[in-house]
């Protein structure tokens, strides 16, 4: 099922949680809503589900305008952050709940409901736990039951709110791979919310990066990482260093020196230069490069990260050096970013 979010605005007590958000989700796609807390990602998910109503704008399921449909009518599978399993029901009853509350001829027989529940438990690899209660399950198992329960109603869209948020790192990685497999098997259109960029980049077909109630960028993991379209995305996704610069005559300048980067397309004037700390090339001597004094040096796993003070204003930038590189000990280091991007100063 395709889902289209068109110019949606959502206010809580006049405070805008989402400002004019538009998003097209393709059928069968696995999409991540990624952003810091307060970016509006959970609000967007709840709006798609029908747990909230938009203040302005519309939400389409396929061709149909679902903006004013209730959550029941939308037929979505929602997995809550803390699972919200019904504590007084067994695992099988939890999974069968959505079928049991159906009316009339669409309601399967009790036997059929049991069979479906077992089938789904097989799918989420929890066979044999039908009679357990949620309190008797581990966090990862509860997560799987919550997903099975959401899938039992044959939803048009599967929505997951921080699906791995409450689990420890080991279980997270396992479940991540498992969710991808489930998605590939069942082909549900799936949207999940996360604040963990590694999770989003690894798991999703496309990542929606959000900040302050707006969508900053939508793209594949490669697009988001290699071609960030805003200072926020550059800073939020992966490691980055930034330094204020000036663009003049198609050249990038720090203070009164050109640093050997030409930017003929860039807008003249004040700007900010972004690059990845590991994606730099060290140079000897300095005519057309960024040079600085090592102010701090830290060992980070397989590399060494140094902070350089550059220019007269002692601006600090971070770059990565090989552990055994002599430059790490030298007081003066010169480098040039291999890949970089300029954003005009706001």
């Amino acid at each position: 099922m395709e889902v289209r979010v068109a110019n949606v605005r959502k206010e809580f007590d006049r405070f805008p949680a989402l400002r004019d958000v538009s998003l097209d989700i393709k059928s069968g796609e696995l999409i991540a809503l990624l952003g810091p807390s307060g970016s509006g990602k959970t609000t967007l998910l709840r709006l798609i589900a029908g747990l909230e109503r938009p203040t302005r704008g519309k939400i389409f399921f396929g061709e149909e305008d679902a903006s004013h449909k209730s959550i029941q009518e939308r037929n979505v599978g929602f997995v809550f952050q803390h699972y919200a399993l019904f504590r007084h029901m067994t695992v099988a009853d939890n999974i069968g709940f959505g079928l049991k509350v159906r009316h009339g001829p669409t309601r399967p027989s009790a036997q059929e409901i049991r069979r479906r529940a077992s089938e789904l438990l097989d799918l989420v690899q929890l066979s044999g736990l039908e009679k357990r209660y949620p309190a008797q399950l581990s966090g990862g198992q509860r997560q799987r039951v919550a997903l099975a329960r959401a899938m039992a109603i044959e939803p048009r869209v599967l929505l997951l709110d921080e699906p791995f948020g409450a689990l420890d790192a080991q279980v997270r990685r396992e479940l991540r791979r498992w969710l991808r497999e489930i998605h590939d098997t069942t082909g549900h259109t799936t949207v999940f919310v996360t604040h963990d960029q590694e999770e989003a980049l690894e798991l999703a077909d496309r990542v929606v990066v959000m900040s302050q109630g707006r969508i900053e960028q939508v793209g594949t993991a490669d697009e988001i990482y290699d071609k960030p379209n805003s200072p926020f995305v550059y800073g939020f996704i992966g490691e980055s260093s930034s330094v204020p610069v000036k663009v003049e005559d198609g050249q990038v300048w720090i203070a009164d020196r050109p640093i050997g980067l030409s930017a003929p397309q860039a807008q003249e004037g004040q700007a900010t230069l972004f690059f990845r700390p590991h994606d730099v090339e060290l140079v000897d001597g300095c005519s057309g490069c960024i040079a600085g004094t090592v102010a701090a040096s830290r060992r980070v796993a397989g590399t060494r990260r140094v902070e350089l003070e550059i220019g007269g204003e002692r601006q600090r930038v971070e770059i990565e050096l090989p552990v055994d590189h002599p430059a790490a000990q030298k007081s003066r280091v010169a480098f040039r970013p291999r890949r970089w991007k300029l954003f005009p100063a706001a």
């Binding site: 029941q72 599978g77 919200a84 709940f97 959505g98 509350v101």
Partner: peptide
């Protein structure tokens, strides 16, 4: 829990 029940069609 109530939201979960509603989302399941109750």
């Amino acid at each position: 829990d109530e939201e979960a029940a509603l989302s399941l069609g109750a």
